[in-house]
Amino acid sequence: MQIFVKGLTGKTTTLEVEPSDTIENVKAKIQDKTGLPPDQQRLIFAGKQLEDGRTLSDYNIQKESTLHIVWR
């Protein structure tokens, strides 16, 4: 499925993911596209910070959802 990651600059990155992907895995995909290391990424969805060990489905993140990224 496709999801979007929007940064503070307003730039949006598209990712191809599975609902079973962990947040850690998603951060690795973001690094592949942007070069930003996972330890500098904070992902937010529906006002919650996403924890590395959880999956996208744990947070009810579905296709075409938009996550927000904040740099540490």
Rank of each mutant, 00 (worst) to 15 (best):
A46K: 15
R72T: 15
G53I: 06
L43H: 01
L8K: 09
L56V: 08
S65R: 03
K6A: 07
T12W: 10
N60C: 05
L36R: 07
S57N: 11
L15C: 02
G53W: 13
T66G: 02
P38L: 11
V26M: 03
G10D: 07
T12Q: 07
P37R: 12
D39K: 10
Q49E: 15
L8P: 14
T55A: 06
I44F: 15
W71I: 15
R54L: 10
Q41K: 06
D39G: 13
S65Q: 07
F45L: 03
T34H: 07
T9A: 12
L43W: 03
T34A: 04
S20M: 10
G7E: 11
E64T: 05
Y59T: 01
K48V: 15
G7M: 13
T55K: 10
Q62C: 05
G10R: 07
L15I: 12
G53A: 10
G47N: 06
R42D: 10
V26C: 03
I69F: 07
K33F: 11
Q41A: 09
I44N: 05
K11P: 10
S65N: 10
V17K: 00
M1Q: 03
K63E: 12
L43M: 03
L56A: 02
G35I: 02
E51R: 07
T34Y: 11
H68F: 13
G35A: 04
W71F: 12
I30T: 02
V17C: 06
D52W: 03
L50G: 01
P37V: 07
Y59C: 02
L15S: 00
R42M: 15
D58S: 12
G7L: 14
E64F: 14
K27M: 05
D32V: 12
S20Q: 10
Q31D: 03
T13H: 15
L50C: 03
I30S: 01
L43R: 00
D32L: 13
N60D: 08
L56F: 02
P37K: 11
S57W: 08
D39W: 13
S20I: 06
V70T: 11
E64H: 14
Q2R: 14
H68I: 14
F45E: 01
V26S: 00
I3Y: 01
V17P: 00
I61T: 01
T66R: 04
T12I: 15
S65H: 06
I69P: 01
A28E: 09
F45M: 04
P37Q: 09
E64A: 08
F45C: 03
E24V: 06
V26G: 00
P38G: 09
G7C: 11
Q40L: 11
E24M: 13
S20R: 09
T14Q: 09
T13E: 12
V70F: 12
F45Y: 12
Q49M: 13
K48I: 14
L67W: 01
T9V: 09
S57A: 14
F45H: 07
Q40Y: 11
P38E: 05
R42H: 13
E16S: 11
T34I: 13
A28G: 09
G7I: 10
D58E: 10
L43C: 01
L43A: 02
T22L: 11
L43D: 00
G35E: 03
Q62Y: 09
L56T: 02
F45W: 08
P19W: 06
N60V: 04
R72E: 15
D58P: 00
V70D: 11
Y59W: 02
P19H: 06
F45D: 01
